[in-house]
Amino acid sequence: MSVYIIGLIDVQDPEGYPTYSQQVPATLEPYGGQFLVRGGQPEALEGTAPERVVVLAFPSAEQARGWYESEEYARLRPLRQQMASGHLVLVHGVDVPS
C-alpha cells in the first residue's frame, strides 16, 4: 500500500521558490518517491485552496519519513520554509480493487 505526503503550499517568494523546487526531485529517488501532483491549479470545492498542491507517493511510511528526515532534504527544507508557508501531512493510501 502506498503512502503519500501531501503539501498545501502558499508561496511568498515566487521568484526564489524555483531554487528550492528544482532540487527536490533528486532527493526523492533514493527513497522511491515520486510526484503525483506538483503545483497545478487548485480549485476550492470547499474552503480555500492553497496556491500549490504537492502529492508525493512512496512505497512505505518508512521511506516517506526517511526522505523527509534525510540530510539531502533537510538541507532544502529551510529554503521552502523561508519562501513559502503551508502544511505537509503523511497519509496512508488504501487498497483499491482492480
Rank of each mutant, 00 (worst) to 15 (best):
V53D: 01
E15N: 11
G47T: 13
A61R: 13
Y31R: 01
V94R: 09
L90F: 08
P59F: 09
R52M: 12
P18N: 08
V53I: 14
F35I: 14
P59Q: 11
G86Y: 04
P30Y: 11
P30D: 05
E62R: 09
Q22D: 10
P25N: 05
R77I: 06
E46S: 09
W67L: 05
G93D: 09
V37M: 11
T27W: 03
A64L: 03
I9Y: 01
G66M: 06
L45N: 06
G93L: 10
V91K: 00
A44Y: 04
E29L: 15
L8K: 12
Q12F: 02
Y68S: 05
Q12K: 13
V24I: 14
R65I: 13
G93A: 13
R80G: 01
Y73M: 11
P78W: 03
E43Q: 11
V3D: 00
V94N: 05
Q63W: 05
V89R: 04
V55R: 05
E46P: 01
Q82N: 14
H87M: 14
L8E: 15
D13L: 13
E62L: 04
P25Q: 04
S2I: 08
E71W: 03
E51T: 10
L79H: 04
Q82L: 08
Q23N: 08
E29Y: 04
I6G: 02
F58I: 10
L8M: 12
T48G: 04
E69F: 05
D95C: 07
R65D: 06
I6L: 06
E51W: 01
D10Q: 10
L28P: 00
L79F: 08
E46A: 14
T48V: 15
Q12L: 11
Q41S: 11
Q82S: 15
P97Y: 14
R75Y: 00
R52A: 03
L8N: 10
T27S: 07
A49F: 05
G40H: 08
D95R: 13
G86S: 08
V11H: 02
P42A: 14
R65T: 12
P14I: 13
